[in-house]
Simulated scan of single mutants.
Amino acid sequence: MTSRIVYNGELRTTATHLQSNTPIETDAPVDNQGKGERFSPTDLLATSLGSCMMTLMGIKARDMNIDLTGVTIDIQKHMKADPRRVGGVEVTFHFPATLALDEKQKTILQNAALTCPVAKSIHPDIEQKVVFNW
């Protein structure tokens, strides 16, 4: 098993990663009857996309002896109604100004990000807009 989820009441859950015993709490968002005090499940979906992209870039960067420490990613989730669902995710990478890469290195890293398992698992109806700010 990967995780165990416990419903805590009041639209809050605690998911525990079984290998590490690390918890993640979720809340329903305010616009869907929740408190919005934690990530919502759909926030985690969008955030997982960015984390997966960064992980794949990190693996490729390590293979190329490139240090990506300090890269930040902004995630913007867009919801749709009827039925309520994630309609799009914007992923914006910001690379440190001190990171000097050539175009070939940038292309390799970008391709690694765009082929991450989460990106390939998200339904094609969910628009993925990815920006790399080198």
Rank of each mutant, 00 (worst) to 15 (best):
Ile5Leu: 13
Gln110Pro: 01
Asp74Cys: 01
Ala81Met: 04
Gly58Ser: 08
Asn32Phe: 07
Leu114Met: 09
Lys80Trp: 03
Val131Asp: 08
Val71His: 10
Gln76Tyr: 04
Val30Ile: 06
Leu56Ser: 04
Thr22Gly: 10
Thr92His: 08
Pro96Gly: 06
Ala15Cys: 14
Thr16Tyr: 01
Asp74Ile: 02
Arg38Lys: 15
Asp125His: 08
Ile122His: 08
Asn111Asp: 07
Arg38Asp: 15
Asp63Gln: 12
His123Cys: 01
Ala61Trp: 02
Leu44Ala: 09
Arg62Trp: 00
Met1Gln: 13
Ile126Cys: 07
Thr2Arg: 13
Trp134Arg: 13
Asn133Gly: 10
Val6Gly: 00
Ser48Lys: 09
Met54Glu: 04
Ser40Leu: 09
Lys104Gln: 15
Ile126Ala: 05
Ile122Pro: 05
Thr26Asp: 13
Leu68Tyr: 05
Thr26Leu: 13
Val71Cys: 14
Asp82Leu: 10
Ala100Thr: 08
Arg85Pro: 01
Phe39Pro: 07
Ile126Glu: 03
Leu11Val: 03
Ala113Ile: 02
Gly50Leu: 01
Leu68Arg: 10
Ser51Trp: 00
Ser51Gly: 14
Lys120Ser: 09
Pro117Lys: 12
Val91Ala: 08
Lys104Val: 11
Thr72Met: 11
Thr16Lys: 05
Asp67Ser: 02
Asp125Ala: 11
Val89Phe: 01
Leu11Thr: 08
Met57Gly: 00
His94Ala: 14
Thr115Met: 11
Asp125Glu: 13
Asn111Met: 02
Lys106Leu: 10
Asp27Phe: 12
Arg84Ile: 01
Thr14Val: 02
Met1Arg: 14
Thr14Gln: 01
Leu18Met: 14
Ser51Thr: 06
His78Pro: 02
Pro23Phe: 05
Asn21Thr: 11
Arg84Gln: 00
Val130Lys: 15
Leu101Gln: 04
Val6Ser: 06
Ile126Met: 04
Ala100His: 11
Asp27Asn: 13
Thr22Asn: 14
Glu103Gln: 12
Ile122Trp: 05
Asp43Ile: 02
Ser48Val: 05
Arg12Ile: 09
Val130Phe: 13
Met57Gln: 04
Arg62Gly: 00
Ser121Pro: 07
Asp125Cys: 03
Thr92Lys: 12
Lys77His: 07
Ala113Trp: 02
Trp134Ile: 06
Thr13Tyr: 10
Thr115Glu: 09
Asp82Glu: 15
Val86Leu: 04
Ala100Tyr: 03
Pro124Thr: 05
Thr98Lys: 09
Val118Ile: 14
Ile73Thr: 15
Phe132Ile: 11
Thr69His: 11
His17Met: 13
Ser121Ile: 06
Asn8Cys: 05
Ile24Phe: 12
Gly70Ile: 03
Met57Phe: 00
Asp125Pro: 02
Arg12Ser: 13
Thr92Arg: 10
Asn8Ile: 01
Ala28Arg: 08
His123Trp: 02
His17Phe: 15
Asn65Gly: 07
Asp102Gln: 08
Asn32Arg: 06
Ser121Glu: 15
Ala61Leu: 02
Ile75Leu: 04
Thr72Gly: 11
Ala113Val: 05
Ile108Lys: 14
Ser51Cys: 09
Thr47Pro: 00
Gln105Thr: 07
Glu90Gly: 03
